[in-house]
Design a protein around this nucleic acid. Structure first.
Lengths: 127, 127
DNA sequence: ACTTCATATTGATGAATGTCAATGTAGTAG
DNA sequence: CTACTACATTGACATTCATCAATATGAAGT
């Protein structure tokens, strides 16, 4: 018998406790978890983190100007910008032949909210 | 020195533009970037994110009670807890033969500060 | 039209990663 | 000491990923 399992628990689950899965879902819905994983994967590479730092510093940078600071080939830069874009962390705008990238503030806000909810002071960030 | 770069283009780089690298470093130091990459890698797996959600919901859970909700073998659970622990997102305490895991609040705080700095606080977190 | 430049895509390759069975280690109880 | 339990580690395998060369797309200028 598994007896002692959890210590601090949400009131609704205190007695039941069969599936921590449900309690976890109440904190992090599946769709949010999925986006968080994508954001994590985007942040899981030093080149991409450096890329974000460059954008944070310069505000807006085109792809070709990323090759030098990141010391990667053009296809590799394109690969990384795509991953960051898909994760919602940056957005690109094509002007002429240049692709201008910048941080996507809404994406960052959502990420930080998800992390706040997870790391969670058991508070009500609640709508 | 201009230091505070804040987000919009820095005057010193507008014309010069040789090294975005330095401007990026002023926003995200190498050691912080490294920790961010580790945290990102830790969050880049759905099983680990689920594990974090379980801990967030239950407060403290031992390894053996993670196998069922995560639907993974014991070695795999051990593998994931190790990665999350190395990333500073969880901490474990051995009591008896059980390993009790919980979220590591300082680690989360640091991560959120790094993200806030990267995402371009319209503010002055300024040091 | 043609040329040039910036970017995206494809294909290939070596490296990293998630998974589990098998085994090792340590703590508890008998 | 022996047996059992919780967890960690090792080894092997399949998958994913980062990288670049080569090629394709597209946009602007001549």
């Amino acid at each position: 018998m598994d007896s002692h399992v959890t210590r601090r628990i949400i009131t609704t689950l205190r007695d039941e406790r069969p599936h921590l899965t449900e309690a976890a879902a109440s904190i992090l819905a599946a769709s949010n978890a999925q986006r968080l994983v994508a954001a994590g994967a985007a942040l899981a590479d030093p080149v991409r983190v450096q890329l974000l730092a460059v954008l944070a510093a310069a505000g807006e940078v085109c792809s070709c100007d990323l090759e030098a600071p990141l010391e990667r080939s053009q296809p590799t830069i394109s690969h990384h910008t795509r991953i960051l874009c898909d994760a919602g962390l940056i957005v690109g705008e094509k002007r002429g032949r240049w692709m201008w990238w910048r941080l996507n503030e809404p994406g960052w806000r959502e990420l930080q909210q998800t992390l706040a909810r997870l790391s969670g002071p058991p508070l009500h960030i609640e709508r």
